[in-house]
């Protein structure tokens, strides 16, 4: 269980005009918990505090107020940090900025080496991770020869090799083209079936998180709304205020509802197609 209690977080920055140190608060008294194997989507505008929130979860940043607990260990307790980081892994937006190795194998081995994984079993584990994410490359392939989608799959393989209990995806699909994005999301869910872990997914593309257990909407450093997706799908205005757009088929279902047609907003693309065909 990830447990965040009244956590606040501030950045200290130089104020250019006045040449003084300025503190900007990006998280205000946030309280939330994430259970094992849960799928939680973090939504909100850029700068609303989603990424800062996830950085608190694996102790990369420490809260200025409040506490963060991972499986009963506090992130401000330094000796616990290696175990916390092993349990909570992050895949970042730009795959190039998180790859340390020159080849696929070396990059996966980097994390394994850091946690003191037995050297004799390392090759086996690398092959397991490559297979888990369905990366079509052997371990000797240079990372410079991978496509954008493959690089992100490698980033995923590198963190999954460490068997995290919680995986955070910080806009991990934002640099991918639509096809690569779909493939990446499918790979992720396939990997979750084979090796269950809680998924904390930051995105601006709602169609990627329709299957989530919960959506958590951040607004100005606070959790504005936390609940199942159905609670959000009828509230297009709120989503629009937070810079989010419903998938077109949900927006169409809502438009039909507004015209008095009895259509549930949570209708899937195929169900909506069948319904429209019946009207025809």
């Amino acid at each position: 269980m990830l447990d965040i209690r009244n956590a606040s977080f501030s950045y200290t920055d130089w104020e250019d005009e006045e040449d003084t140190l300025h503190t900007s608060r990006v998280l205000h008294q946030v309280t939330a918990s994430i259970a094992a194997n849960e799928f939680v989507a973090l939504l909100g505008r850029n700068g609303s505090g989603k990424s800062s929130f996830t950085r608190l979860l694996n102790g990369i940043e420490l809260p200025s107020e409040g506490t963060v607990q991972v499986e009963g260990r506090f992130t401000h307790d330094s000796p616990s940090l290696p175990l916390i980081r092993r349990a909570v892994q992050i895949v970042f937006q730009n795959p190039e900025n998180q790859q340390v190795g020159m080849t696929v194998g070396e990059d996966i081995a980097f994390g394994l080496s850091n946690i003191g994984y037995p050297q004799q079993q390392m090759q086996e584990r690398i092959a397991w991770a490559i297979d888990l994410v369905g990366l079509d490359a052997d371990e000797d392939r240079p990372v410079t020869r991978l496509s954008g989608g493959e690089k992100q799959k490698l980033a995923l393989a590198s963190v999954l090799a460490l068997s995290p209990k919680y995986l955070i995806l910080d806009e991990a699909t934002s640099m991918l083209d639509p096809l690569a994005r779909k493939q990446f999301v499918a790979t992720l869910h396939e990997a979750r079936k084979r090796h269950p872990f809680a998924l904390i997914y930051i995105t601006h593309h709602l169609e990627e998180v329709l299957e989530a257990d919960r959506w958590v909407l951040f607004r100005e450093g606070r959790i504005h709304l936390d609940g199942p997706p159905a609670q959000f799908l009828n509230n297009e205005a709120l989503l629009a205020e937070c810079g989010l757009e419903l998938p077109y088929y949900h927006a169409l279902a809502l438009a039909l509802q507004a015209k008095g047609v009895s259509v549930p907003a949570s209708l899937g693309i195929e169900e909506l197609r069948d319904l429209l065909c019946r009207f025809n």
């Binding site: 950085r55 694996n58 990369i60 290696p82 980081r85 092993r86 892994q89 992050i90 970042f92 730009n94 900025n97 998180q98 340390v100 070396e106 081995a109 980097f110 994390g111 394994l112 080496s113 850091n114 946690i115 003191g116 994984y117 037995p118 050297q119 390392m122 590198s158 963190v159 460490l162």
Partner: peptide
Amino acid sequence: LRAKELAVAMESRCYQGDEGRTPIRL
């Protein structure tokens, strides 16, 4: 900026210097 992001990524992948590391190859 790249160096900063890489440092965060390395740290989150449990990097803490050579303490407790196993060699990648023998």
